[in-house]
């Protein structure tokens, strides 16, 4: 079979075997909190500490009204967490599944999807928490919020592609997950998660977000939820261009490494 045809087949077969990756991913979520007294409530507590601590300090620092800043920070932080978790965990998707990959004949992509499931649970909880925070602070709700749905789809696709690239490339270059972890730590403070774009513009630091694809991926979710309208067109255009580029890279990386993965693990 031609490599491209095999890759397409494998991806489809993996998606159709949703029970397998759903089960593995959900088991990972449960396992993460195994023997923990507080359990998955940690997701809530973690977010609460960040938003409570950072929110109040940064909000004051940047002279932001807390009732709009806290929801903004919550959803931005939740999106950031999802993007960075799928990138770093994606790097381990094949490495950690070595025992399975060398023993079972399922398409490898189920281990990428497992990572996505594992990260999507805290993400979904986080989005729910955003609504609670917004409601408590008396923020308006409206029909424009539905624009979040295409945004979530874009983020989901991007994360799958991120994780795919990382899974393949990290199996070959084991330095990559370490490098990405370091890079993401820096990017978190550079990407407008804690501060608004307006703050950057005032100080002439536009370039910080303009050339940062992760900003656009956050914005397609955050803008509809905080502003109750579709994000600006350029945000969608930038996201889609980035998705296309990611897709191309993912295709090239997987084509190059697909047959070799089992040998280099």
């Amino acid at each position: 079979m031609k490599p491209l045809a095999k890759l397409v087949n494998d991806n489809i077969a993996a998606l159709l075997n949703w029970r397998v990756w759903w089960h593995l991913g959900m088991a990972d979520v449960r396992n993460r909190f195994a023997k923990s007294f507080v359990g998955p409530t940690w997701i809530l507590l973690n977010l609460g500490m960040w938003v409570g601590g950072m929110g109040v300090i940064y909000g004051t620092l940047f002279h932001q009204p807390l009732e709009t800043y806290l929801p903004f920070l919550t959803i931005g932080f939740v999106c950031w967490g999802y993007l960075s978790q799928t990138i770093t965990d994606g790097g381990n998707a094949f490495v950690f599944a070595e025992g399975y990959i060398k023993q079972f004949t399922y398409p490898k992509q189920i281990y990428v999807l497992r990572v996505i499931v594992n990260a999507s649970v805290p993400f979904a909880i986080g989005v729910a928490i955003f609504f609670v925070v917004a409601a408590v602070l008396g923020q308006p709700f409206g029909a424009g919020m539905w624009w979040v749905l295409p945004g979530l789809l874009i983020v989901l696709l991007a994360s799958y592609l991120h994780a795919t690239i990382m899974a393949y490339a990290s199996a070959r270059f084991r330095d990559l997950p370490h490098g990405m972890t370091a890079l993401l730590q820096v990017l978190m403070f550079v990407t407008p998660v804690f501060f608004t774009v307006g703050t950057l513009k005032e100080r002439g630091l536009d370039f910080v977000y303009k050339y940062n694809p992760l900003y656009y991926l956050i914005e397609v979710v955050r803008h509809p939820l905080t502003k109750l309208e579709a994000a600006p067109t350029e945000v969608y255009v930038a996201s889609l261009i980035y998705l296309g580029a990611l897709g191309l890279v993912a295709l090239l990386v997987s084509l190059r490494l697909d047959r070799r993965i089992v040998y280099i693990l």
Binding site: R19, V20, H23, L24, A27, N31, A34, E98, G99, Y100, K102, Q103, F104, T105, Y106
Partner: peptide
């Protein structure tokens, strides 16, 4: 339909019960 049985001590989730591992293996098969 191939059913392989190799390297019997790998491909287990060590911190999970025997039951859970049966489920995972059977699924992967």
């Amino acid at each position: 339909h191939v059913c392989p049985l190799f390297e019997f001590a790998t491909g287990f989730e060590y911190n999970r019960s025997g039951w859970e591992n049966i489920r995972i293996r059977a699924m992967l098969l």
